[in-house]
Amino acid sequence: MISAIFSLALTTGAPRVVRGSRIEHVCGNPSLGPEKDRAYSKEIVRAALTALTTEVTEPTLFEPAIP
């Protein structure tokens, strides 16, 4: 799950949680401008794909890499 308010996702038991940006724009940051916004979005999605292929034993937070 990609969430800006990831703490709730973790405490309610979502096994794989990716740190999102803000509630208004979870998968990016438009204030960075279109190019950097897209680069940030890509890292978030990349982290989500990594999380899907990672074994977890408890709710785990995955951080997107800094683009």
Binding site: A4, I5, F6, S21, R22, I23
Partner: peptide
Amino acid sequence: WSSQLEKN
């Protein structure tokens, strides 16, 4: 507040 940081 719209981010986890700010809520905390």
